[in-house]
Amino acid sequence: MSKTTEKRPLLEVKDLKQHFPIESGFIMKRQIGAVRAVDGISFTVNEGETLGIVGESGCGKSTTVRSIAQLYKPTSGSVIFDGIDLVNAPREQMLDARKNIQMIFQDPYASLDPRMTVRTIIAEPLEIYRTRGMLDASVTRDVIEKRVEELMERVGLNRAFKNRYPHEFSGGQRQRIGIARALALNPKIILADEPVSALDVSIQSQILNLLHDLQKELGLTYVFIAHDLAVIEYISTRVAVMYLGKIMELSRSSDLYKNPLHPYTKALLSAAPIPDPVIERKRQRIILTGDVPSPNKERFGCYFYDRCPYKMEKCKTNIPPMKRMDEHHEVACWLYE
């Protein structure tokens, strides 16, 4: 990768909102509210870097990457990929750009069609774009066959297993199949939604290493979701901490552990167990009370207000804007006004 392009923004998300309507009534459907899954977030991802998204269940991580991949039509905001606004571009142009955006999913059991062979699974994105006539004419059946074998080897699968079915593979191997499939179209960016959360520790490190190697070799850009902070910190260049559909803090990953600013980030970090009994005994935990509130309600104050140990009067009725603290660190909290 040439050094000059390293800082080029590849993906820009601006004030993205993804609301899901809540409807009532059988015949006359009436919208009675909305799940504010993603409620106005902005960030950029530079070429060759990994942006980590971390946060608790239901905070909108998956919805964020799905809206980026245009699996949903965003409620508002824009997703600019490589100079093209995916939300408003004509379909043909959007699909062409979409080729460069691929996803890997959490559950290697559920995300692969059990009736398809590994070969068919990996080749599927190529076949789809070929039938659409959106691939180079030189991509023939033979080329695809070759590509499948090459991809299998690359992700550490024996090409002899090409005609086997997903259930014949272990969890880690299935995740490798998912990765090979995501690589098939030679994408620029991979959106990885909890790719290691379902795996055992020893398998998890194999997959993290594989993703790390692939990034180096192929110059890939990642958006990587996890709820495990240590995993996020390990894999990411920068980290976005989400809560209730909002980004609370955005920081270089190496700074996040050393210098967390947002009260939520602090709580999250202090709750994450560290595999060292000597350290664990000495640690002071910030134990948050209560559960994550429902995202169905419109909020007019800080989204973390209900559970924040430092809340002030002002936080109740004013939404804190994202404030830049230094070149690599932004936070949305009234404590840093």
Partner: peptide, 18 residues
């Protein structure tokens, strides 16, 4: 023990892996 990433440790390059 070696193969889990650790929040409190600086890291560069690859994780230990079984």
């Amino acid at each position: 023990i070696q193969s889990v990433p650790r929040l409190d440790k600086a890291h560069d390059g690859k994780l230990f892996s079984i």
